[in-house]
Write a protein that binds this DNA or RNA. Structure first.
Lengths: 182, 182
DNA sequence: GAGGTTTTAGACTATGGGACGAAAACCTAT
DNA sequence: ATAGGTTTTCGTCCCATAGTCTAAAACCTC
């Protein structure tokens, strides 16, 4: 999945595993894995046509080019696909809130406003830029980087630039309600 | 998995899927699914012997009887098994903290001290009974039930009885760091 | 400059949850 | 029965996270 023009898009690829082939190799044949910022296994299920499918879930940055057609999430697609995409979006929503997974959707450098647009598209609801900045900064997920982005034609204060501190999935352990006592 | 005598135990079963069989039916042949309080898919991987295995993860109450041998987590087992059990325990630990998953490990009615012992065994670290009670009560995961448990030989105040309000997995949405603004 | 826009920063507040200590309710032993 | 030990329960204090709101900063065009 990726966010493009403020909309969450999905690209589905399907590949049959060759005899003796590893899951990783089959994935490599299905899609250019290196172009994805994040990849994880979603679920294994039997599709309506009876085949056993292990579904993977990948994230790419806005500009990413890949073979195949990106479709906006919510557009009319076969039932199997809709279910899979819904499961993927659910996973994405959950992880965006308690991990640094935003790194996989965002360009290397961005303003908080741009990041907010990505989150709005991925989460499907509005997000406060102020809170987004404070939460991600406090967690250490995002950090300031030198420079500003010049305002557009309509004016406005120049926006500070940020980047994700890590480019690999890190889990915020703040949902650990019952930590070990000291 | 289950907690027995203050220790987390695992029971592994393996079954080959028959041609055309659903995953659910294969599970039914592998284990008495109805005896489990919770069942979810963990991951699909290729084992060291080259077979493609979809791993499921179930939870049972302390007294549960099932065919097969319960082994304490951490005891010496083949590498494949150790990895799977470690993945399962990791999932269990995470979900115990932000869901009501404790219902699947606990008997119908219990005292907070008994529940604390279950959590200690499953999490692998100490837990404060006071905080455990307050957290689970506030979430509405656990509720008071009539009656008390008589103290043991060493004395002590009679313990109040509790039960889990729901017997199905419910996610605490409090780790939603970025809720939609009003 | 005046007025509009976007970004940034700060103050206030609500809430979840950890630490600690005291009180309650029971036991056994003297 | 009275004292001392145990277990459970309750209440208070405090801190960190995060939502809301408002004002200030920095830029634009006219």
């Amino acid at each position: 999945m990726r966010v493009h023009d403020g909309r969450l898009e999905a690209l589905l690829r399907r590949v049959a595993r060759l005899p003796g082939e590893s899951l990783a190799r089959a994935l490599e044949r299905a899609i250019e894995v290196g172009a994805l910022e994040h990849l994880e296994q979603l679920e294994t299920r039997i599709l309506r046509d009876g085949t056993l499918a292990t579904v993977y879930f990948g994230l790419a940055r806005p500009g990413t080019k890949l073979d195949g057609e990106w479709r906006a999430v919510g557009s009319r697609t076969p039932a199997d696909e809709r279910e899979l995409v819904a499961a993927a979006q659910s996973r994405l929503r959950a992880k965006l809130s308690y991990t640094n997974l935003g790194f996989a959707l965002a360009p290397e450098v961005f303003t908080i406003s741009e990041l907010r647009e990505l989150y709005v598209a991925a989460l499907g609801h509005d997000v406060s830029a102020t809170n987004l900045q404070r939460v991600l900064l406090r967690r250490g997920a995002v950090e300031r980087v030198e420079g500003h982005r010049a305002p557009g034609r309509t004016g406005g204060r120049p926006a500070a630039l940020f980047r994700f501190a890590a480019q690999r999935l890190e889990v915020t352990d703040e949902f650990a309600a019952l930590r070990p006592p000291r």
